[in-house]
Write a protein that binds this DNA or RNA. Structure first.
Lengths: 345, 345
DNA sequence: CACGATTAGCAAATCGTTTTGTAAAAAGCT
DNA sequence: AGCTTTTTACAAAACGATTTGCTAATCGTG
């Protein structure tokens, strides 16, 4: 089952010898560079085919060419000490779609941890380009890649880097406004917002949209921040905090993380509230927990697949043209479900 | 925001010049090879730190060292003309867990399409090792990697390669037997088996277990094969075929793909059967569709996360020790749900 | 002080490509 | 024939590391 002869992979030298020419001529023939007589070129091609030769991508890259790999960093997963993506629906779907799109375009997709960390695989800085998903403010990963002259594209902007332009919109002001309008249409008068604790654009934009909404529709500002890594438990904690709040309960909650929203709903139900009769709930990202909760929870579908494809496409365009411009934002949609559908309506 | 000077990344030569030594000494100092005076070594280390030097992984790899990347090929996704992983629960979870485990061990995980195909990224053959998930019989990918002397580990064996030993068990004879026993305990007397059309070990082992079961518990052999890429639609097709079968309906169906099982159940319900009263259903792999169907469908949990971690660990061990031996099979469990739970029971 | 053993450090080869510069051969022109 | 131009092909220099010899310098020891 092992290689019959211990013959290593054929190199350009083998092809040259086999065709009776120099390695220069081989290289030129294969890459249609330089000037090579048609007959010679054919001879080289035949020799290459006979030997099953394919150029070594590593050697090629060393000389300055492309490796055919793009790196993907998912920041929110990164910041955790122990990577724990289970149930993090959005990222799993994002990775899958990004992989497919890259592969279809002839690139491998490499998943990498924060490349600024010491134990990061060294190859991280050898790839052709990077996609950074949901960077934090003044993200050191952007800093590093930028300094290393590696093209990069982010999904969601770095809120502390107004001059950085290579980013795609991913959920933002409009999304949040659509949610508030929906809640309002369902009769909500006191809307609460719950974000995570990361310093990213998604949270910042949602906060801003909330502030603007309140200005136009006066009510108490009810905002909670809950560490996104706490998942459903975190949602329960927020529910308890709301129940203990002297200002009284809101009549609608916009919880940005899907798992958190599910935990919040479950805890409120345990404490005797009926959803959606007593309280409306919307999750800012769709997740299995929002789809399988009872009642099912209205969620923003952030369209991770489409976003991933757009990100890969944008990066690949930038590889060829440094000045390629970002595509228009991906259209997200609100999936209205049981948690905001009053039986009467 | 761009690099202030167009200073490229520092090389070993820069460090050597800065420290006033030769590049040999730099290399030796950094890798603690050779013999270097403590003072010199410190000087080199300081210079390297001052310049922010880190060795170029590509150059390193060219000389024969490790790249720090492992490749992952998911065969069932590969065989499709258009990669379409949506809803394929098992693989998405597998990829996520494999990525985490690799990253934690200092390796990047690169997703690759069938590297035997022409348009595959060239780098595919430059990685340190490969994991191939669910190889088909006499898999050309194994052939290629083996010939290229790239260490590889498969999840599920290649059924036509009895001598190939570097594989992990993934669902097999035991799983299927457990399912048949469960169905039998719930009163089933005519069990049908539905596999996909791929030529892999999972299907083959299930077929064999079925054959053995029938031998011990005489009944008609009712076996269907349905292209796994057809998803829920495929499940409906099988249901219709069973309804049209002159031998009459089975009283239990073991459908290996989760989406297929969900489609089958839905179609039977449309045609007036009540599940589980009239027919028991078990899915061979868990999926969102089996969890959210009504009733929920009993499924085998193939433990993709644990399997992925075991595969990465096995491969990494084999990188260091060619003779490392495969770990024991991962324990799968049967998640009993509504589709096989008779209210009476 | 002479001698072998050890310690330090360097030049050069190597990995497999691409690219640059140059020389030889062929062709074109008076 | 003698000269310039165009073709064709090659040798050699990158790319950035690791590793192999080899030469000095230092150290013990009798």
């Amino acid at each position: 089952m092992t290689a019959d002869r211990d013959r290593r992979r054929a190199t350009i030298h083998d092809v040259a010898r086999h065709a009776g020419v120099s390695i220069t001529t081989v290289s030129h023939s294969l890459n249609t560079k330089g000037i090579v007589a048609a007959a010679t070129r054919q001879r080289v091609l035949d020799a290459a085919a006979a030997l099953g030769y394919s150029p070594n991508p590593i050697a090629r890259r060393l000389r300055g060419n492309r490796l055919g790999v793009i790196g993907l960093v998912i920041r929110p997963l990164d910041s955790l000490e122990t990577y724990q993506p289970e149930g993090v629906d959005y990222f799993v779907r994002f990775v899958g779609a990004a992989a497919v799109e890259s592969l279809d375009r002839g690139f491998g997709l490499m998943l990498v941890r924060d490349p600024t960390k010491q134990n990061a695989p060294a190859i991280a800085l050898g790839v052709d380009g990077f996609i950074v998903c949901d960077p934090v403010g003044n993200d050191p990963v952007i800093e590093l890649l930028d300094r290393s002259d590696i093209p990069l594209v982010t999904v969601g902007r770095d809120i502390e880097r107004p001059n950085f332009e290579n980013w795609l919109e991913s959920g933002g002001v409009t999304d949040a406004t659509v949610v508030f309008e929906h809640l309002s249409a369902q009769g909500a008068k006191r809307i609460a917002l719950v974000t995570g604790t990361d310093d990213n654009a998604w949270y910042a934009d949602s906060m801003q949209a909330y502030a603007e909404w309140i200005l136009a529709h006066p009510q108490d500002a009810i905002v909670y921040h809950q560490d996104e890594t706490t998942g459903e438990t975190g949602g329960r904690v927020v529910a308890d905090a709301m129940l203990a709040d002297a200002r009284g309960l809101p009549d609608a909650v916009y919880f940005l993380t899907g798992r958190g929203a599910a935990g919040l709903q479950a805890r409120f139900q345990e404490r005797g509230l009926e959803i959606p009769r007593d309280l409306l709930i919307v999750a800012g990202s769709d997740a299995e927990q929002t789809r399988s909760a009872v009642p099912t929870i209205t969620s923003v579908d952030l369209a991770p697949e489409e976003t991933a494809r757009a990100a890969v496409d944008f990066l690949l365009r930038r590889l060829d043209d440094e000045n390629a411009v970002a595509p228009p934002p991906v259209q997200n949609t609100l999936r209205v479900r049981g948690s905001t559908t009053r039986p009467s309506a």
